[in-house]
């Protein structure tokens, strides 16, 4: 049996009486790709915020392997091994594509440890590989602000790949993408399967079908169902809550 990479135990957050996430318990295995599904306001992004430390939980625990990381500071959680991609693509806009990845390749977090020049041959090779993987080799000397929306999304994925965390949280990685871009994104994500544990929040069912193994459905801050694509598509509770009577379109 695979080991649990991330264990969430009764996690809740209370925003002045409104429980955006209410007693969520789930386990994600090492190397698994888990999709979080749910309508707007179901608590998907909030759950990611809680895992990555952006929002502090009011109840429950989060474990990364055996380490209790509940309510740590964001950069400490990141260093412990959780990387995150935001819904709105965020990259370092005034740096070149290559520079962006170099920043992410930096293994030492402190200021004084980084008072030195260059990143080392190994880091540069790694950056080259990631550039290849996200298809931005040709654009490596462009300033990130001039990239297209899709390219910016891939660059942010590249930052995560370079950072090389154990767990990758992806918040709507295909938002605003064309079909061709979505397809390429699923290729990149599929490429990461096995090497990283991945949790994806996504609405786009075509994309979900391309990548998903297991799906957890959230509804009003609670876990509604869990299973593979087929089970979820045929689950009457899920159909009722989200998909309408016609099923997944």
């Amino acid at each position: 049996m695979a080991q649990a990479a991330l264990t969430i135990d009764g996690l809740s957050v209370d925003f002045a009486g409104f429980k955006a996430v209410n007693g969520v318990t789930m386990t994600v295995d090492d190397g698994e790709l888990r999709v979080l599904l749910g309508a707007n306001g179901a608590g998907k992004t909030t759950l990611m915020d809680l895992i990555s430390g952006k929002t502090k939980s009011t109840d429950g625990r989060v474990y990364l392997h055996d380490t209790d990381i509940t309510n740590w500071e964001e950069h400490k959680i990141a260093r412990a091994g959780i990387g995150r991609k935001f819904q709105i693509p965020s990259v370092f806009k005034e740096l070149t594509v290559r520079r962006n990845l170099e920043v992410a390749s930096c293994r030492k977090p402190g200021v004084f440890a980084n008072l030195r020049f260059g990143f080392g041959a190994e880091a540069e090779r790694n950056v080259d590989e990631v550039l290849e993987l996200i298809g931005l080799t040709e654009e490596q000397d462009r300033i990130a602000a001039y990239l297209s929306h899709g390219q910016t999304q891939w660059l942010e994925l590249g930052l995560l790949i370079t950072q090389n965390p154990k767990i990758i949280l992806l918040d709507e990685p295909t938002a605003g993408m064309t079909q061709a871009e979505t397809h390429k994104t699923s290729e990149i994500v599929n490429n990461l399967k096995g090497r990283h544990t991945i949790i994806v929040v996504e609405h786009d069912m075509a994309f979900v079908r391309e990548i998903a193994e297991r799906i957890t459905v959230l509804h009003l801050g609670q876990v509604l169902a869990e299973g593979n694509v087929e089970q979820i598509e045929n689950n009457p509770k899920v159909r009722e809550a989200y998909l309408g009577s016609k099923g997944i379109s």
């Binding site: 964001e74 950069h75 260093r79 935001f86 990259v91 370092f92 806009k93 740096l95 920043v103 942010e156």
Partner: peptide, 16 residues
């Protein structure tokens, strides 16, 4: 400079 461009992104890459 990365921090200047996007504090949060830098934070979630593990930088203090």
């Amino acid at each position: 400079q990365a921090v200047r461009d996007d504090q949060n992104r830098a934070r979630y890459l593990g930088f203090d």
